[in-house]
Simulated assay, not measured.
Amino acid sequence: MTEKTTSSDRQMLKMLRFLAKGEVRLERFGSEAVALHHGTARHEIPSGLLSEAVSRGLATMAQDSASLAPAARAYLRRALAERDEAFIEQHGDITRATRDIDGRPETLRVNEAESPLASLARLKDRNGEPFLPKAALAAGEHLHADFTRAQLQPRVTASWQPRLSGRSKGERGGMADLADSAVAARTAVNRAIEAMGPELSGAALDICCFMKGLETVERERQWPVRSAKLMLRTALLALARHYNPPRRAARIQHWGEEGYRPEMETICR
């Protein structure tokens, strides 16, 4: 696949995806067109396209049938990955950012356009300062990372328990099926919710974890317009204090002025 996908590339990709359904029956229309049939599905292509796929080792062809060659599987994966990457580059906001991965900072390519939290990071307040301080943004990303490691998205129930698949008698289920890292992450998420409180945690979960937009949150919760970002800011500031609690200064007790010593009474028996 070239950097700029051509019309013939798209035709080849579409044909190979059709062949991936299984062996297809060929219906020829003269020397210029071929119809591929798989069950009730039908796909018409130029006959030269199928011949090209055979010559490149992407397809095999008999007299009245054709099928996908093993080499085409890798071709399809690579082509689809390049197409998705091109779409993201065109419609996304790709930057490099440092994220905490299993306790270690790693530099990743991040699509900031997909996150409502990232869009809020560009907002300014009346004084020109960032609407969300760095500590609040870091807290939101920390919550999202824990939420992802806890395997709470996208299949989440009201009781915060995973949906259980069918299992035979004697097998473990529920929390016992989770890895230790996922269990620890769930504990971290629950503690974060407690730190924010029931009034604020809902907005943080909706926006940072479920990736809902501000307008969606306001509509679902029947909040006034432009109130969701204020609730989110308050929630993330509280969460930032939970993740990085301020240090308490040691209390110094003064007995008196400098040089002062209390009088001690001698007790005689």
Rank of each mutant, 00 (worst) to 15 (best):
Lys4Met: 09
Asp9Asn: 04
Asp9Gln: 09
Arg10Lys: 14
Gln11Gly: 07
Lys14Phe: 14
Leu16Phe: 05
Phe18Cys: 06
Gly22Gln: 03
Ser31Gln: 04
Val34Arg: 00
Ala35Val: 13
Ala35Arg: 12
Leu36Pro: 00
Arg42Ala: 11
His43Gln: 05
His43Glu: 03
Ile45Met: 08
Ile45Leu: 05
Leu49Ala: 10
Ser51Pro: 00
Arg56Ala: 06
Gly57His: 01
Gly57Tyr: 02
Ala59Val: 02
Ala62Arg: 13
Ser67Tyr: 05
Ala71Lys: 08
Arg73Val: 15
Leu80Val: 09
Glu82Met: 12
Glu82Thr: 13
Arg83His: 11
Glu85Phe: 08
Phe87Met: 10
Arg96Asn: 14
Arg99Phe: 14
Asp102Ala: 09
Val110Trp: 06
Asn111Asp: 15
Pro116Phe: 01
Ala118Thr: 02
Asp125Gly: 00
Asp125Tyr: 08
Arg126Ile: 13
Glu129Ile: 03
Pro130Lys: 03
Pro130Val: 03
Phe131Gln: 04
Phe131Ser: 02
Leu132Cys: 01
Leu132Val: 08
Ala136Glu: 07
Gly140Ile: 00
Asp146Leu: 08
Phe147Ile: 06
Phe147Leu: 04
Thr148Ser: 10
Gln151Trp: 11
Leu152Tyr: 12
Leu152Trp: 09
Trp160Glu: 01
Trp160Val: 06
Trp160Tyr: 07
Trp160Cys: 02
Pro162Met: 11
Pro162Arg: 10
Arg163Leu: 13
Arg163Gln: 15
Leu164Ala: 14
Arg167Tyr: 12
Lys169Ile: 15
Gly173Phe: 13
Ala176Asp: 12
Val183Arg: 07
Thr187Ile: 12
Val189Asp: 00
Asn190Tyr: 15
Glu194Tyr: 14
Ser201Gln: 04
Gly202Glu: 06
Ala204Val: 07
Ile207Lys: 00
Cys208Pro: 02
Gly213Asn: 01
Glu220Ile: 00
Trp223Ile: 04
Pro224Thr: 02
Val225His: 13
Lys229Tyr: 06
Leu230Thr: 15
Leu232His: 03
Arg233Lys: 15
Ala235Leu: 00
Ala240Trp: 03
Tyr243His: 11
Asn244Phe: 13
Pro245Gly: 07
Arg248His: 11
Ala249Cys: 03
His254Lys: 04
His254Asp: 06
Glu258Ser: 08
Gly259Met: 03
Glu263His: 12
Thr266Ile: 11
Thr266Cys: 01
Arg269Phe: 14
